[in-house]
Design a protein around this nucleic acid. Sequence first.
DNA 1: CCCTTATAGTTTCACCTGTAACTACTTGCA
DNA 2: TGCAAGTAGTTACAGGTGAAACTATAAGGG
Lengths: 148, 148
Amino acid sequence: MPVATHADHAPLELERFIPYQLSIVSNTVSQTIADDYQARYDLSVTEWRVMAVLARFDGLSAREVAERTATDKVAVSRALSRLVAAGRVRRHMHENDKRRSVLGLTPAGWEIHDVVAPMARQRERDFLAQLSDEEQAWLGRILDKLMP
Amino acid sequence: MPVATHADHAPLELERFIPYQLSIVSNTVSQTIADDYQARYDLSVTEWRVMAVLARFDGLSAREVAERTATDKVAVSRALSRLVAAGRVRRHMHENDKRRSVLGLTPAGWEIHDVVAPMARQRERDFLAQLSDEEQAWLGRILDKLMP
DNA sequence: CCCTTATAGTTTCACCTGTAACTACTTGCA
DNA sequence: TGCAAGTAGTTACAGGTGAAACTATAAGGG
């Protein structure tokens, strides 16, 4: 059996360290959701997030998608390449600014969205069901406050 | 300006989707902490977590470290190779079971630990300072409940 | 005992990610 | 105008990461 070391060193108790707990909880729930669609649609987490914002905001540029998903623009560019190649996202150039792309879901993209979005919401409910109503309300407020 | 698409499709509101919020908040705080030690000590997040558990539990095997850090055993194996090579962790074989390693921090490992642990705790305090005392208490309880 | 099965740890492979460098286009000011 | 500076997006490179395969050792049942 492992033995706690001398108190002089004040070791970090990882399992009670909030940033560590957040990382474990976040990875667990995200992976659970991703398991629902990754194998079935060959869709990465980043790709799904891109599709989710395009479902809400049609016609965004790649940079705007990057902002709204809090994702690096390089990652968005790669996700878009795959999504366009798979026929899930349409991309054309802005008429007045030839640097910008104008993005949106294709019918095939919408089909996937309309299956995955309800699954994701259901997983969110399953996850929150571990908490009481009061705890759920506090968690919502706390996360809103902590979001950058 | 982007326009919200038709309600039939019920698009996900990413910025109010709890798993997404968790992932943003978690990545932000973990990266802030990592910035403190990564460049200074050439230490990855996984390596730091391995050191933190060895600070608390001397003599663990690699598998036990993997369990306690919720990290893949491959990632732990690689982190240990680097930590041993850097003289921060000592590793020898278990006398009765030659498959198992017996791990612990070296004096050099302790020196780093004793600098990084207080920094990490300070970052945790800074992070929590965004919340009221009541919110901090709820967050603590909620995370304990959600930890697998 | 021996042989099957299980476990600890490492290596390999394929992929994902972020940083930096690059191209193409636009803007603004001399 | 035309040239410097800024912006959108892609490409290249350099790690990091997980799944699967592999080696070595241990455990357990005939």
